[in-house]
Amino acid sequence: MSDVKKFMFVNRKAPYGTIYALEALEVVLITAAFDQDVSLVFMDDGVYQLKKGQQTKGIEIKNFSPTYRALEGYDIEKLYVEQESLEARGLTEDDLLVDVTVMTRAEMSELMDQQDVVLSF
């Protein structure tokens, strides 16, 4: 199918402090209906979106982190996390609530270069 395009969503913001992370997730869920080749990248503070153990009762904001685990059911299985971003935040793959592929900055930039559409959040 030649009409399938490679869409990459680049998540660079922490959850809750701004609305970007939640908005990106909603756009991704909608995009899933169009049967495109979708991948999600988490880099910079975006890696914090996937941190295990988020408890938002105290700030009275909906905890949307469980929704990342629903992505598999939406056939969105390409989740990439930049290694350098994890390290700069004292996090490891074990701290994340979904299965991801951890990549180096160089690998990530290569992958980004291959996309048809890159959407940044």
């Binding site: 869920l29 899933a32 209906a33 909906k62 905890n63 469980p66 929704t67 685990r69 629903a70 059911g73």
Partner: peptide, 13 residues
């Protein structure tokens, strides 16, 4: 479990 209502396609599956 997921904090969203699934799309019909996802519900069906």
């Amino acid at each position: 479990e997921y904090q969203i209502a699934p799309a019909v396609r996802v519900l069906t599956k």
